Each structure stands twice: as structure tokens, then as C-alpha cells.
Amino acid sequence: MRRLWAMLPFALVGVALLLDPGTAGPAWSNLAVQAVLFTLAAAIPGYLTRHVSYVDVAWPWGLVGIGLVTVFTADQLNVVTVAIAVAYLAMGARMGLWSLVLTIKHGWWTPGSPKVELPRYQYQRRRWERQGFHSEAWSVQYEIWLQGLANASALAVPAFIVAADHQRPPAVWSLAALTLWAASYVLESVADRQKQRFAARGKRGTCDRGLWRYSRHPNYFFQWMQWNALVLLALPSLPARFHDTTPLVWVLLTLGLFLASWTLYATLTKHTGARPAEYYSLRKRPDYAQYQATTNMFFPGPVKTPQKDAE
């Protein structure tokens, strides 16, 4: 029941997308895309290997699917609709291409090779044990399809709300939101590159250079900010949905818009992001505890001075 309750908000938002006349077309197409993609790329291999890591392939390419569906199902293409579709394509392709690198590195689809579960999903198994979930097969499928449901519902809401607003011209608000998205996209890439360069130089210990000096997870923070930018971009299109659908559906679409931001925040800080990463970092890097004491976990901020024990 706990897991069903976790799925319920996404299911309700997904139904709202299907019931709203302005979003129904792309929502049905996206539902089909996500179902096929997650079945072939994650659910079937996950069932065969008992590994969740395949979801890291399905979910970013699912974002690419949302971007393509937005373009090809829109009744009218305007500048804002094209811009948000491009944002989904860019976010999805960036992470999706990296996921293909991981598939080669870990041999996820190489017959006979050992399948290596990513650490964050190894950590998930600790949660399953604490929560009393004993069926590994069911737990793997739950994790995969929860993400698939998110792709089919809340994560698609910003794009489909914007695409349904046929009369929306570019404006200062749209320009500001797109500028925030572009800056966050670049800064996430910069953070990843800084860490890669730190590792490539053969340095031991914790990367505390560049953006990593101000946040222990700047790449996660700026990924979250990209979604906040898309939510802001979609906000001016909400009133148009109120006039075209029922109040209940409109409320659920509004909920879905903010659920997109909350879902990424919870995922990146707790579910499969910062918390499992720090669990393993503390065990692998002797200096990580000091890094935790002086650097904010998620939101960038000034370096803190560690408090000394009282004599």
C-alpha cells in the first residue's frame, strides 16, 4: 500500500493530462512512447537480471520522447513550444548518451558479461530491507515503473501545457525562464566536467574545486534548476487550461506542474542522488567528512568554518 500511495499523485496527474482536451493528444502519444521504451529498455532486462540500473537508460531517452511528442503532436508550433521541446531534447540526450557509455562500461547488454548494479541502486536495496520489502523482483519493477509513470505524467506537464497554449507569444517572462534553463544546463555540464578533470588528473580524495567548492552536488542542483525553469516557463499557460477543461482537471495539472519540481528535488537529494552518493563517499574517501562539515550539500553557499570541539 505504501508504494501504491507513492504512485497515486503521478497516476492522477497522468489521468488529468489524458482528460484535458488541450493535452490529451500528446499525453496519449507520450504514454505509448514511455510504455514501449521502459518495457524494452528497463523492465525486461531488469526482470532478467534483477537490476534497476537499466532505468538510467530509459528515463533520459524518455525525456527525448517527450520533446519529440511535443513537436510532432502540437496543433501549432510557436517559439515557446519549440523552445521547451528543445530543452527536453537537450536534457534527455545529454543524460541518455552518458547512459549508453555506462551500458558499455558495465556490460549491461553484453551476453555473458557480469552485470554491475550502480551504487545508488545498491543503496536502494538497503532501503527495501529497512522498509520490509522482501521481493527483489517486485521491487526492481516498482522502481522502474515509478520512473516510467513520472515520465508519462508530471515530468511531461510543463511541455504539454505550453504546447496547448496556441496564442502564447514570446515575452519577457519566457525569455527569463529560458535564460535560467540555459544557464543551469551549462552549469550542470561545467560541474560534471570539473569533476571529470579532477579524476583524470589522478588526484585522490574529494573534488572541492570550482563549483564543487560551494556545493557537494552542484550538478544535481543545476539539474533541478533546469526543471524549475521549465515550470516557470509553463506558468503563464495555466490560465488557458482553466478555460478549456474542468476545475478538477485544472487543479491536477497545476499539481503536476509543481510535482515535476518536487519529484526532481526529492530524487536528487534523497532517493537516488545525494544521499546514496554520500553514503559511499564517506566509506571511500577519508576527507569526505571534513568536506561535509565545510560545504553545503545541495544549495550552493559560502564555505563554512568547521566548529572545533569545546575544550
Rank of each mutant, 00 (worst) to 15 (best):
G92Y: 01
T73S: 15
S153P: 08
L63G: 13
Q226E: 14
A199N: 13
L149N: 03
A177G: 09
Y214Q: 15
P21K: 11
L180W: 10
V231F: 12
S53L: 04
A137L: 15
V82L: 14
F299K: 02
V64L: 04
D165W: 00
L257I: 07
A11C: 11
Q307C: 03
H106G: 04
L77C: 11
W181S: 07
P158S: 10
W108D: 08
D208I: 12
V36Q: 03
G256P: 08
V82F: 05
D244I: 04
W61H: 00
Q131W: 00
Y121F: 02
V69Q: 04
G46T: 00
W98G: 07
G62K: 01
L19H: 08
V186Y: 08
W61Y: 05
L146P: 06
V157W: 04
V172H: 04
P45S: 01
R126I: 00
Q147P: 00
D287Q: 11
R213Y: 04
I84E: 11
T179N: 03
L232H: 05
Y214S: 14
S261C: 01
L235V: 15
R125K: 12
A83Y: 02
Y123Q: 01
S99Y: 08
F160G: 10
L40P: 08
Q223C: 08
E129A: 15
W181Y: 11
V52C: 05
G14L: 03
D192Y: 03
F38T: 00
A266W: 09
R120Q: 14
P306D: 09
A260E: 15
M225W: 11
P21D: 06
A266I: 13
L238S: 09
K115G: 03
L149I: 02
L257P: 10
Q124D: 02
L230D: 10
S135M: 14
V157D: 03
G273P: 08
L118F: 03
T305Y: 09
L253Y: 03
T49I: 00
A32C: 14
V249Y: 01
A24Q: 15
F10M: 05
T81C: 13
L175P: 01
P111Y: 02
V64M: 09
G273E: 12
K115F: 00
A289I: 05
L178R: 01
G22C: 14
M297E: 09
Y88V: 00
Y47F: 10
P21S: 12
R283C: 04
K203P: 00
S113Q: 06
T269D: 10
P45I: 00
L63R: 02
H166W: 05
T263E: 10
A83T: 09
T23D: 06
T267P: 07
R275V: 07
W59T: 01
G256C: 06
W59D: 02
W61L: 03
E136C: 08
L252N: 12
G14N: 03
T267N: 15
G132T: 08
N78D: 08
F72Q: 05
G202E: 09
A229F: 10
A176I: 13
L187Y: 06
Y288G: 01
V13P: 06
A42C: 03
V116D: 14
V116S: 12
G132F: 11
V80A: 12
Q141Y: 06
R50P: 01
G67A: 06
L31A: 15
A156I: 12
H271G: 02
V231T: 09
W250G: 15
A6M: 07
W181G: 05
